[in-house]
């Protein structure tokens, strides 16, 4: 194991700010992409269904 304690782990040998700044923003980017995509996919389906129901009437 590389780390003596959890505070050691978060500290990253003094580079915690940069390491977590990198990994944190990457995680945020991935999360935002997934959430936006799910939302857009749901929105498209609902809209197409509405259009179809409207056409049938």
């Amino acid at each position: 194991m590389e780390w003596a304690s959890w505070s050691d782990f978060w500290h990253m040998g003094g580079y915690g700010f940069y390491v977590w700044g990198s990994f944190g923003v990457t995680a945020a980017c991935v999360l935002v992409e997934v959430v936006l995509l799910k939302r857009a996919a749901g929105e498209t389906r609902r809209r197409l269904k509405r259009m179809q129901q409207w056409e049938e009437q």
């Binding site: 590389e2 780390w3 782990f9 990253m12 003094g14 580079y15 940069y18 390491v19 990457t26």
Partner: peptide
């Protein structure tokens, strides 16, 4: 990246950014 890879001889822990930087 965080628990098995050892520290680097030049860059110590800062090099761990490579694990996302290079794949990205």
């Amino acid at each position: 990246a965080f628990f098995l890879a050892p520290t680097d001889f030049q860059q110590s822990e800062a090099y761990r950014i490579i694990f996302i930087h290079v794949p990205a």
